[in-house]
Simulated assay, not measured.
Amino acid sequence: MKNVGEVRAAPQGVPQEDSATGERSTRNRVARSILDHGPSTVADLAGRLGLTQAAVRRHLDALVGDDVVEAREQRVYGARTRGRPAKVFVLTDCGRDAFDQSYDKLAADALRWIARTAGGGAVGEAAVAAFARDRIETLAESYRAAIEAAPPEKRTEALARALTADGYAATARSAPGRQRGEQLCQHHCPVAHVAEQYPQLCEAETEIFSRLLGTHVQRLATIAHGDGVCTTYIPNAPDGSDAHAAPDPDGPRQPPDPPGRTAPRTPPRTERHPSASTAGRNPA
């Protein structure tokens, strides 16, 4: 499970780092107990975890503030007794997402089934690629209007904002060095573990970037391949013309190294369509 919540000031005499670690650990235990046992009262949690009720309340207040748990009135079955029902605490959707899920395995199993059912081999790989293209086409529909509304020089930024809204934590920046272009960096990939097994997901994504931006693009690195950041190089179109049309007067140059890259790169190969042929694969 991810650590949930932040820590307040350390008690006097306790090192800040040790106190923070202990607070996070106990807070995670509280959330885990609710996950394992369902809606729980303060008394339930205190008894299971060996904590005072005051300590449990303090951790629950922090978890509620972080949208990890929420308080509800306890359901009463049968005749109700006097007084208000006890308050119980349950995990929110955000809280459940903080724990390990099996979505990656489910997605990989589904793609494996598609490949096998289609006949395996090249036919199976083509079926997975068709699925990947259909998936990214659906996602791209929500990006297209924002990108087309932006001026040409701002379209990479518009794409980065759209990707960020979908959980990719994307940024756009000028390409370093003498390169005339931009780098689209995705600092998070929600499907990275599945893309390790099925690079067709990265390839389809790169193809749609090319179509949305109206130029060829080159994938330099992917998280699925072990790089720190998914990085796509987007060359500027000289004088507003097609980016394929005008050669660099100084001759071809190797695209810049992406941020977070961990492996050396081999010299670039001659490619008919860089956006398709290098997608999902690190040139290293």
Rank of each mutant, 00 (worst) to 15 (best):
D250H: 14
T262E: 09
A46Y: 04
C202W: 01
A145Y: 01
H37T: 07
P15G: 01
A195Y: 05
G251E: 10
A132D: 11
T21L: 15
A107F: 13
K2C: 00
V14E: 14
S40W: 00
S241K: 10
T81Y: 07
D61P: 01
A237T: 05
A169F: 09
V90Q: 12
G240K: 03
L220F: 04
A170E: 02
E141N: 07
P152C: 06
S19I: 07
E6S: 13
Y233H: 14
R253Q: 14
D109N: 12
G181F: 11
G121R: 10
H273T: 07
T231K: 07
P256V: 11
Q200W: 01
T92C: 01
V76G: 01
V229K: 12
D100F: 04
V194Q: 02
G177Q: 08
H37C: 08
H188F: 14
T81A: 15
C189E: 03
G120R: 08
L51D: 03
E125Y: 00
L212Y: 12
Q254A: 12
Y143G: 00
D93G: 03
R32P: 01
T270I: 11
N282H: 15
P15M: 05
A107W: 08
R58N: 12
G83Y: 08
A160F: 06
A130W: 02
G50M: 06
N3H: 06
R112W: 09
R57H: 06
P11T: 09
R219K: 04
A108P: 00
A122Q: 12
R57L: 11
E203S: 13
G5V: 06
V217R: 08
D242S: 15
Q74R: 12
L35W: 08
H37K: 05
E148S: 13
E271C: 10
Q218D: 04
T164I: 04
Y233R: 06
A115M: 12
V123H: 07
L45N: 04
I234M: 05
S275L: 00
H216S: 10
R116M: 14
V68F: 04
Y103Q: 09
S174M: 11
Y198G: 00
R261K: 10
L163A: 12
G251D: 10
I34T: 03
A221R: 14
A130H: 10
R180P: 00
A158I: 09
Q186P: 01
Q101H: 13
G226T: 07
V128L: 10
Q179C: 13
P190N: 01
L60H: 01
Q16T: 15
T215D: 00
G228N: 10
G228C: 11
L63H: 05
T26A: 13
R265N: 07
A110E: 08
I147S: 08
Y168H: 14
R116E: 15
H225W: 03
Y103A: 12
D109Q: 13
D36H: 07
P258G: 15
G177W: 08
R219C: 15
A162C: 13
A195T: 09
T26K: 14
E141H: 10
S210F: 02
R27A: 07
R58E: 13
R29D: 15
A237W: 00
R80P: 01
A279F: 04
S275Q: 01
A149N: 12
R32H: 10
H244C: 08
P259C: 11
P235E: 04
V69R: 01
A108W: 01
L35V: 05
T270W: 08
A129D: 15
E73W: 02
R27K: 12
T41P: 11
A192G: 04
G214L: 05
P190G: 02
